[in-house]
Amino acid sequence: MGHIPFIAVEGPIGVGKTSLSKKLASQFDFHLLKEIVEENPFLGKFYDNIEEWSFQTEMFFLCNRFKQLEDIERKYLQLEKPVIADYHISKNMIFARRTLREDQFQKYSQIFDILTHDMPRPNIIVYLHAGLDTLLDRIRMRNRDVEANIQPSYLEQLSRDYEDFMNHFEAAHPDIPVIRLNGDDIDFVKHQDDLNYIVELVEQHLNKGEVIK
């Protein structure tokens, strides 16, 4: 029994998740789900003082993403309309584990489980990763105010956390294909060939019968 395609594009800050999601959504004519980032009122404060503002920041993201997933389930997946998202809900745990105090993390983790246990989960993951220089360059280029104070050390740690998370994810979910792409070698914004290559990979997974178009 196949599933309606629900593809998530994931990877650390600045790697190009949203750009790739937009291109894939338009290529396959899937609904695009974009995460709410700049609307988070705590984010600027968070990058200034992670310890002080992490719980509020993570809770804001969790509530918003929960609402988005509810909408996606009701308006798209239940009506057999495919979706591509520029995040996977599990990313919340990557950030929370790194930024919250232990007592806060325990509370957060319980709330996360309650909210997400019956939510739809993506059935194909596109995982974009890249070296620190590439990430810093792209963050500089897009010039978001809220990201002005991101520390390179935070970004480097986040990349490692993502790598660990994806390795665990693949081990725990052998039925969910993960397409890994190295953003240092691939520039799908500048090079049509690179984009075609990615589209082809996704196409192969869609055609395998793991999901139904």
Rank of each mutant, 00 (worst) to 15 (best):
A130E: 01
T134P: 10
E156G: 00
R142H: 06
S153L: 13
N123D: 12
Y154T: 02
R142K: 14
Y154R: 02
I139M: 12
D145Y: 12
I124E: 05
I150T: 01
P122L: 08
I125M: 13
R140Q: 12
N143P: 13
L135T: 03
D137C: 08
P122T: 05
D133W: 02
I124M: 10
I124V: 14
I125E: 12
I124A: 09
E147A: 03
I125C: 06
D145G: 15
L136E: 11
R160E: 12
I125R: 10
Y154P: 03
G131E: 00
R140N: 14
I139G: 12
L132W: 03
R138K: 13
H129P: 06
M141R: 13
I139L: 14
Y127Q: 10
D137P: 09
L155C: 08
Y127M: 10
M119T: 13
D133M: 11
M119V: 15
L132F: 03
M119C: 14
H129C: 08
V146D: 05
R138C: 02
P120K: 04
M141W: 08
H129V: 06
P152S: 03
M141V: 09
G131Y: 00
A130H: 03
E147V: 02
I125Q: 10
E147N: 07
L128H: 00
G131T: 00
L136T: 12
N143A: 15
N123Q: 13
P120H: 05
P120Q: 02
L128F: 02
R144W: 03
V146R: 00
I124C: 09
L135H: 02
N149G: 13
D137W: 10
L158G: 06
N143C: 10
E147D: 08
M141F: 14
V126D: 00
R142G: 07
I125Y: 09
P152N: 01
M141D: 15
D133Y: 03
R138Q: 10
L136F: 07
V126N: 00
L135A: 04
Q157M: 05
P120G: 06
D137R: 15
E147H: 06
I124K: 12
M119I: 15
D137L: 14
M141T: 11
L135S: 02
L135R: 01
I150G: 04
L128K: 00
L155F: 07
Y127G: 11
S153P: 07
L158Q: 09
L136R: 13
P120F: 09
N143W: 11
N149Q: 15
Q157C: 03
M141L: 14
S159F: 02
D133V: 12
L158I: 10
M141Q: 15
P120N: 07
I124W: 08
N123V: 11
A130Q: 04
Q157S: 05
R144A: 07
I125F: 08
